[in-house]
Amino acid sequence: MLNYVVRRLLQMIPLLIGISIINFTIMHLAPGDPVLLLSERNATPEELARIRALYGLDEPIHVQYVKWLGHVLKGDFGRSFVDGRPVMDHILERLPYTLYLNFIVMIIIYLVAIPVGVISALRQYSKFDHAVTFFTFLGQALPSFWFALLLIYAVGIKSNWLPIAGVATIGVNVKTSGLWATILDRAKYLILPVTVVSLGSMAGIARYMRSSMLEVIRQDYVRTARAKGLPEKAVIIKHALRNALLPIVTLLGFELPALFSGTAIIETIFSWPGLGLLSMRAIFQRDYQIVMAMNMIGATLMVLGNFLADILYVIVDPRIKYS
């Protein structure tokens, strides 16, 4: 096991280097010179050259890459071209909001999707199953921004207490309003974005649970358990469900990057100050340092998440041998 873990970790190194090279190259192939962001439109070539030198942009691309990588390894993603603040500061001040939203969404998704998936598998091709399939497909097929805007107009504006944008009422916090009032206030702001984000994502998990369950109840050991005359409830809960949940556990590994990834469109509509908005603004403003950092961190988490998922899989499923 230890061998396997070490080997997987070592394999990550070339992967991450590859990611960093592609990441860096994409941003530097982009038309639109970042120097133009830092100067006036009618700046002279001399002025441009000076600014370029100031930011180290006059060096050959591979030199720039090595320097950038050196800093990244030390956890320094440089400074934003636009406002001069460290990229890490930008990310850290947004991260809590994205984590907060995604964490709540994740809990709700799993709480709903697992039982729904199980029931629709047990009653395959029943009305319930068809309804679930329909709703999961609906969640996937509905353009999320359309749904979000419809919610804002249909629910948000009409009701007086449901906020349509932001994360909290200014001035409401534990100190001034007490714990419960604060929790209630935060919860109100969560309702609309959480609804939109979970509807879209629930589909995948519910479908996955359904097929995992379907696969398990066809297995011999479930048949055996039934044949032994065990009550159906015991068969389902003790034998089938436990095994069907195993692959779901491994999904937790994939949740790592998902927790971190902001949802640009939802954050735009609900003015949610998370990483999605940050990335999107950076992309539009060509704030390369931030875009590269976001892509790099996102990709690294994805790699780690995959690794974690594999390890979890090995741990929960004794049938799988690691070599």
Partner: peptide
């Protein structure tokens, strides 16, 4: 794996924007 590791929608946005 490298391509897969990038956050898909942002990779898409980044490239489309350039």
């Amino acid at each position: 794996e490298i391509v897969m590791s990038f956050p898909t929608f942002f990779l898409l946005l980044t490239i489309i924007s350039i």
